[in-house]
Write a protein that binds this DNA or RNA. Structure first.
Lengths: 126, 126
DNA sequence: GACTACCTTCTACAAATGTAGTAGCATCTC
DNA sequence: GAGATGCTACTACATTTGTAGAAGGTAGTC
């Protein structure tokens, strides 16, 4: 099931993932006041996320509806990375290169990745 | 100057970068038939790109207008990577981790990045 | 059981995006 | 210079996205 999320949807999903089973109000209040949208805005987005199959309703507490994530953060992130990768011609090299250039990738990060790669390779990839 | 490009705009920019000084027709024909939009669609996008300051008109050949990129691919890509990075909480670690998991990052890529990092560091960061 | 506070559902709407048709002008070709 | 060909400029329009108000239901509180 292909789930393409918009910026705002992604933003809301962050909270759903972080908060677990949660309600509109809870999400809305978790958003920093500076960028906090109206209650109904959050609700609209949640409804759209539900239509897209990204979240589902679980139960009701009082008259408040609770939601929880259906898609994993990992899956969504993977898709984002893949999309970006496509842009870069499918090769991760330019992507990594950009990371290095922006000074955000440290030697430690690389070492860590190397470890991970070796481990993963051990148990036969994908 | 902040240039935010949509998917289609980005797609078109790929061709502008690749083709250099180029015309609508040239871009349109360079797009694989399977996903080739109408001529006027490409034109509309180019106009929007011009409004956004991503491309500019250069000269005319016959009655055909030529365009060229104003923003560099590097700049745009950097922005994309930065945005993705923000999503990942600002740390590149999960991003790289995803790359490794998808099996797209090789040891060679890592070695290469390491080299680059060391070199870059030599001439003072940022 | 009447209020209050809070929720949901509906509806709305402007801006951005993808997509393209039409009309009319510029060129090229005889 | 008249017709064919191709390009631009303008206009159009359905969707998607961000944003939220209004109306009405539900539940805790005196």
């Amino acid at each position: 099931m292909k789930v393409r999320l918009t910026r705002l949807e992604l933003e809301i999903m962050q909270y759903v993932w972080r908060l677990g089973e949660t309600a509109v109000r809870e999400i809305q209040e978790a958003i920093p006041a500076s960028k906090r949208p109206a209650y109904t805005t959050v609700q609209t987005i949640l409804t759209r996320l539900e239509e897209k199959g990204a979240v589902r309703r679980t139960r009701k507490i009082g008259n408040a509806q609770l939601y929880e994530a259906v898609v994993t953060q990992k899956k969504i992130y993977q898709r984002l990375v893949d999309e970006l990768l496509d842009l870069f011609g499918g090769s991760p090299e330019p992507l990594v290169s950009h990371l290095v250039e922006s000074g955000k990738l440290t030697l430690e990060d690389l070492k860590h990745a190397e470890e991970q790669l070796k481990t993963a390779r051990g148990k036969k990839g994908k």
